[in-house]
Write a protein that binds this DNA or RNA. Structure first.
Length: 728
DNA sequence: TACATCTTTATTTTT
DNA sequence: TAAAGATGTA
């Protein structure tokens, strides 16, 4: 036994070992990027179980992503000869779903309640707004959804929300109506899973104590990303005597815009009486220069919990900084470097191309495509979010749960059956009159010819699918759904239908290989799975492809070589972030995440000009580049060419397909303004506003005005006669 | 119902 | 620029 324990614990550094073997107290582990966080988390669970301090069922481990939860389970089974089935290891939402399924009566939900993903929620809210004749201009569904989710994540119900003006009063009304609609239809959105579980545990003392007694050890991953409700939920479930092991990194908190509160880490320290904060600062991923850059950058943030990554891997290569004149020049540079790296033997999958926002991927893709390099863009629609898959799932949902009006409306006339908007309206009116779900109200509605038979036929097909669910295995039920719904037939005739049919077949495969480890029946479990796990955003396996993704989606990943592109003021840091509270600091953390993805080689690139929203924009070099000590960097790029070189740059946009030729690298970004001493794209300084770049001009003579994008104060129009602009 | 035309808008998104 | 959503027409 001791020697087995040795294998478990061997190879851990002193801090990791201390964290893993901590007694039954609550503790905060500040785990820097690449410091072996997942290893610590799983090894601790294994250690607790092996040493007899905890039983597998007495452990609660919470993550944010399904991937992280799976990873933990896989590693755990590798360390211990135990069956992880029945263990509470999962995402916040997954565990809440489990809790609510087990106690659906207590919380007033039907046993087969359905889960709305963000899309479903939005269309549900749209229905609420329509039924209330709300002004959708003034109250866009997106904003209403944001309001409702924010309230729920603060643990506040509609009835408890205090409006502060007329707009918020309307919002609260929508919230209340939406709550009612969801309840009537037996559906819950993501935030509701959390809130309902929280309320259950608050209200039911016996249940609460039951779980508190059971879970002596609670472990939480990515603690910096918890929102208020998740924090309170943990507090409730953990109870006063449990050991809560919170692992996180305040420097990697990049989801504040979604309600995450870094402050939860400090709060945790106080409220859970944390005696010693353990810092995992040894980094096993990146070489020295890269870590030094990350450390230097992040010290510009205030109020950090404090941490300095180090490595014994040596300094490694300098950070390469490339400043292009145009976005295409930037892309061409990247392509050339990737080619070189590939020729040197690096796998393309080991090279990442990161950007702040998805729109930036286009230019990059174009250049990569032209170069004939295989690449993969992360971040598109995921499997269970595709329209055809959602249609098929809507059929299954209706078969399982007739109250699901959202599902009903999605497929009542898709594929088209001649049931028009008017018929649907009549059914909705009838449903309100009879206080029934649409699928039950529909047969009561008198419709004319085509629509009447269409509706009857539709209901009959749903009914056939329902009886199929009673007898057939899951995969065959889905097969039946594809046929009965006419979806397969429909897509056969559609232009781009082949891929959709493939996805539908894939859905059958997914069902066939779905292993149901819950108490639910297969269909219900599969539907939960489909809502809670939208599917992989993994790149195609097998293919050696360059990896393109936003910095956000790169969190948690690592690559030998990383390009961080578009490092311009306004883009990264994003201009919208500058006006938000702590927005700049979150952008900086994002940059910190980007830098720490790299193992050996890091490129930082930017362009003086860039096509954005159909216009050319001129951005200053990102302050984040300046925050990295020059001594760590090697500067490359055409900006070192003489700056006086001025010309039109019109022609190059028109033939981007040839732009990877070397002469395009010499293109420049400035265009002279007729009759004025300044040019667009020129760097200037203002006595009050500081440095900036001229982005546009209009008028002439005394009326001449120029638009200047200032680093400190943003974009301004200035009359040249008055403004004391100087060329820099 | 399907298709065309216009208007609007444009961070990031674990569940 | 270009994609999505709203509105108009056959």
């Amino acid at each position: 036994m001791p020697e087995m324990n040795d294998t478990l614990l061997s190879g851990l550094n002193p801090e990791q070992l201390a964290a893993v073997t901590l007694p039954r107290v609550s503790s905060l582990v500040l785990a820097g990027a690449g410091s072996g966080k997942t290893r610590v988390l799983t090894t601790r669970i294994a250690h607790l179980i092996r040493s007899g301090q905890a039983s597998p069922l007495g452990v609660l481990a919470v993550t944010f992503t399904n991937k992280a939860a799976r990873e933990m389970l896989v590693r755990l089974t590798g360390m211990l000869p135990i069956n992880t089935r029945g263990m509470w290891v999962g995402t916040f939402h997954g565990l809440c779903n489990r809790l609510l399924r087990a106690h659906h009566r207590e919380v007033g939900l039907p046993s087969l309640f359905q889960i709305l993903d963000s899309q479903d929620q939005q269309s549900s809210i749209k229905r609420v707004l329509r039924s209330m004749n709300a002004d959708e201009e003034r109250y866009p569904p997106r904003q209403v959804a944001y309001f409702i989710n924010s309230q729920k994540e603060e643990g506040i119900r509609a009835a408890q929300t205090k409006p502060w003006d007329s707009a918020s009063r309307a919002m609260v009304e929508f919230y209340a109506a939406y709550e009612q609609q969801c309840q009537r239809e037996g559906v819950v959105d993501f935030a509701e899973l959390l809130l309902r579980s929280y309320e259950l545990l608050t209200a039911d003392q016996r249940l609460r104590e039951h779980y508190q007694e059971r879970f002596g050890f609670v472990l939480v991953d990515e603690f910096q990303d918890t929102n208020r409700l998740q924090y309170e939920w943990l507090k409730l479930l953990a109870g006063p005597s449990a050991s809560v092991f919170a692992v996180g990194d305040d420097d990697q908190s990049i989801y504040a815009f979604r309600g995450a509160r870094v402050g939860n880490m400090r709060l945790f320290e106080q409220e859970f009486n944390v005696q010693h904060v353990i810092r995992l600062e040894q980094n096993y991923r990146s070489q020295g220069n890269i870590l030094d850059a990350a450390n230097a950058l992040i010290t510009n943030n205030q109020g950090r919990l404090g941490k300095n990554l180090w490595t014994d891997a040596g300094k490694g290569e300098p950070i390469r900084v490339y400043e292009a004149d145009t976005d295409f020049g930037e892309a061409s540079f990247i392509v050339e470097e990737v080619r070189t790296l590939k020729a040197e033997g690096l796998a393309l999958t080991d090279i990442a191309l990161l950007y702040r926002s998805n729109a930036q991927s286009r230019v990059l893709e174009q250049a990569i495509f032209n170069a004939g390099l295989p690449y993969r863009v992360y971040g598109g629609l995921r499997f269970f979010e595709r329209a055809e898959v959602k249609h098929a799932l809507a059929w299954l949902r209706l078969a399982a749960h007739a109250e699901d009006d959202g599902a009903f409306l999605r497929v009542i006339n898709f594929p088209p059956q001649g049931i028009g908007a008017r018929s649907i309206e009549l059914i909705q009116e009838q449903a309100i009159a009879l206080n029934m779900p649409l699928s039950r109200a529909a047969p009561e509605v008198k419709l004319s010819g085509k629509a009447a038979t269409g509706v009857q036929d539709f209901l009959a097909r749903i009914e056939r699918l329902r009886s199929a669910t009673q007898t057939l295995p899951l995969a065959e039920v889905i097969e039946e759904a594809l046929t009965l719904s006419g979806l397969r037939e429909h897509y056969k005739t559609e232009r781009e239908g082949a891929e959709r049919i493939e996805n539908l077949e894939e859905l059958i495969n997914a069902a066939a290989s779905f292993n149901n480890d819950s108490e639910l029946d297969d269909l219900a479990a599969f539907l939960s799975h489909a809502s809670l796990e939208a599917g992989e955003r993994e790149a195609g396996v097998g293919q050696d492809a360059l990896q393109l993704m936003t910095v956000h989606s790169a969190k948690g990943l690592e690559f030998s070589a990383v390009f961080v592109s578009g490092l311009e003021e306004g883009l990264f840091p994003h201009e919208n972030a500058l006006s938000e509270n702590d927005g700049l600091e979150e952008e900086r953390r994002l940059m910190y995440v980007a830098i720490t993805r790299a193992r050996k080689r890091l490129y930082l690139t930017r362009s003086a000009s860039r096509m954005l929203h159909g216009q050319v924009r001129y951005g200053l070099r990102s302050r984040f580049i300046d925050e990295i000590p020059e001594g760590l960097c090697r500067f490359l790029g055409p900006s070192q060419a003489p700056k006086e070189f001025i010309s039109q740059w019109a022609s190059h946009r028109e033939s981007p397909l040839h732009a990877s030729s070397s002469k395009d690298q010499a293109l420049f970004s400035r265009a002279a303004i007729k009759g004025l001493p300044f040019s667009i794209g020129q760097s200037v300084a203002h006595p009050k506003f500081g440095p900036g770049v001229i982005t546009a001009a209009e008028g002439s003579g005394e009326d001449a005005r120029v638009q200047v994008n200032f680093r400190e104060v943003g974009s301004k129009w200035l009359v040249l006669t008055y403004a004391k602009l100087t060329a820099v």
